[in-house]
Each structure stands twice: as structure tokens, then as C-alpha cells.
Amino acid sequence: MKKWLSILLTSILLAGILAACGTSEKEEATNGAGEESEKKVLTMGTSADYPPFEYVETAKSDEIIGFDIDLAKAIAGKLGYEVEVKDIDFGGLIPAIESKQVDFVLSGMTPTEERKKTVDFSDIYYTAHHMIVTKKDSGIEKPEDLKGKTVGVQMASIQEGLAKEMVEKSKIEMKIENRNRIPEIVQELNAGRFDAAIIEDTVAKGYLKENKDLAGHVINEGSEEAGSAIAFAKGSKLTEDFNKELNAMKENGELEKLVVKWFGGEQ
């Protein structure tokens, strides 16, 4: 009897141990699968007033769409990330990186020497030109014609820097007014409070289609400076990772497909 009781107790104990091991392994597998299934998320900062780079078609939805959005999602997707887009005034984008509100910025931003002091940049992904936008009957066509005029620019943009250079280096005496958003600048133009504005040509063309009373003239001098790059926090590992995928997209034609989609192939 003692022998049978001993065998029975041993069997029960062994069964319990095996069951516990099985449960532990199952939980570990479940937890592991759960962690793998959870997508890593990156927060992207952008100023959604810059079609076709980033904007909202309010008649259709409140979703931010555009060239930069597609590019960010394409690169992040290859790296195993999802992208959460955060709309911020352009002048607040670099501070948002510095304060870690966002992981990166993709917003048609030019990597100037001043900006490089506080953030890192990817390689250039798109090159555009500067354009003077004004009323059709204004007689303003080139920088020299801006003398004595009030000129609108987006705050903290490369165009604001260009306008200041015109005053300081080219000695073109004009009044520079800045606004947070491009639509505000166009509104001031239409209201006659601005004589002209300096806007990136790719963006300006969209507003010219909607505002038939406005005309645009490309600024030849210095127009190649408006290259756009992705901005990251200083020392971020994402800079190298994004750059690798960006250059792969340049080589395999994926970037060109996005250019054709959003700009009609004109660069």
C-alpha cells in the first residue's frame, strides 16, 4: 500500500511540474508574440500648411497628407515603425525636436548652417526654387523690384533668411513681415497688406492656381538653396537609419514615383 501511495504522489507531483512548465512556456510565447505584434511608433513634426508637401484637404477629412507624409511613412515602414504626425507651426519645429516632443521633422526644411547647430539632417530629398508671388498688375518681377515694398515670408523659413540677405547684402530696402502659415501670407497679399511674398515655387504654384489674380516669378539667384532634408535630434541613430533608406529609395526609383505623384514629375 505504501508503495502504491508513493507512486501515486510522485505521479501527481510530476504532472503538476509539467503543467507548470507548459503554462510558463505558453505565457512566454504569448508575451513574446505580443511584443512583436506591437508596432514601434515615431512622432513626426510638420507644419501642415505647405501643399503638396504637407496639408489638409478640409473638404474631405482632417487627415494630414502630402509628399513628406508619404515619404516619412515609406522610410519608417521599412525600418519597422509606424508614424504619428503632429502639426506644429514651422517656427516651433526645431524646438519640438530639442524638447523631445517629436522624433524627427519632415516639413520641406532646408538644412542651413544655423539649423545644423542644433539638429542633424539627412541628405537632401528634394530641391526647389524661391519664387516672388505678387498681384499680376504689381510690376514686381525680380528682387530689385521689391525696393520700398512690404514683403511677406513664413516665420523661421529659408525664404525669411533670403529676404534678410536681400536687405543686408543686396541693399534692397524693403519691409519684411513674417507669418506662421502660408495661407496667412496669401491672405495678406490678396488684401493688399503685402506687396509681395517669397515662397518656395513648388508650394506657390498650388496657391497660384487657386488665386487667379496672383502671379509668380522664380528668383534665379540663390534659388538652388531651397533643398529639403529630414531633421533629427543631435546624435540620433535615426539619422543614419533614415538616410540609408532614403538613398535606397533614390536608387530604386521609389522616391521618383512619389515626386511624380505629388509634383507631376517636375523638379
Score class of each variant (00 low, 15 high):
Lys2Trp: 11
Trp4Pro: 00
Ser6Lys: 14
Ile7Val: 11
Ile7Thr: 04
Thr10Ile: 12
Ala19Ile: 12
Ala19Asp: 00
Gly22Val: 06
Ser24Tyr: 14
Lys26Pro: 00
Glu28Phe: 13
Thr30Leu: 15
Asn31Tyr: 12
Gly34Val: 00
Glu35Ile: 00
Glu36Met: 09
Glu36Phe: 04
Lys39Asp: 13
Leu42His: 05
Thr43Ile: 13
Met44Arg: 00
Ser47Ala: 11
Ser47Arg: 00
Ala48Arg: 09
Tyr50Asn: 15
Pro52Ser: 07
Pro52His: 09
Phe53Asn: 09
Glu54Val: 07
Glu54Pro: 01
Val56Pro: 08
Val56Leu: 06
Ser61Glu: 03
Ile64Met: 05
Gly66Asn: 13
Phe67Leu: 13
Asp68Thr: 00
Leu71Arg: 03
Ala72His: 01
Gly77His: 10
Val85Gly: 03
Val85Pro: 04
Leu93Arg: 01
Ala96His: 06
Gln101Ala: 09
Phe104Ile: 05
Phe104Leu: 15
Phe104Gln: 01
Val105Asp: 09
Gly108Trp: 10
Thr110Trp: 11
Thr112Ala: 07
Arg115Phe: 01
Lys116Trp: 08
Thr118Ala: 08
Ser122Gly: 01
Asp123Tyr: 07
Thr127Ser: 15
Ala128Asn: 12
His130Thr: 02
His130Arg: 04
Lys135Phe: 11
Lys135Met: 12
Asp137Asn: 15
Lys147Val: 02
Lys149Tyr: 12
Gly152His: 10
Gly152Met: 11
Gln154Asn: 02
Glu160Gln: 15
Glu160Cys: 03
Gly161Trp: 03
Gly161Tyr: 09
Ala163Ile: 02
Val167Leu: 04
Lys171Val: 12
Glu173Val: 05
Met174Trp: 00
Ile176Asp: 00
Asn178Phe: 08
Arg179Val: 07
Glu184Asn: 07
Gly192His: 11
Phe194Ile: 10
Phe194Tyr: 13
Thr202Trp: 06
Lys205Ile: 08
Lys205Trp: 07
Lys205Cys: 01
Glu210Asn: 12
Asn211Ala: 08
Lys212Thr: 11
Asp213Glu: 15
Leu214Asp: 08
Gly216Asn: 14
His217Ile: 10
His217Gly: 06
Asn220Pro: 08
Glu221Tyr: 13
Glu225Gly: 04
Gly227Thr: 08
Leu238Gly: 01
Leu238His: 04
Glu240Lys: 15
Asp241Gln: 09
Phe242Asp: 01
Glu245His: 03
Ala248Met: 03
Glu251Ala: 15
Asn252Asp: 15
Gly253Ser: 07
Glu254Ile: 05
Leu255Asn: 01
Lys257Glu: 14
Lys257Ile: 07
Val259Ser: 10
Trp262Gln: 00
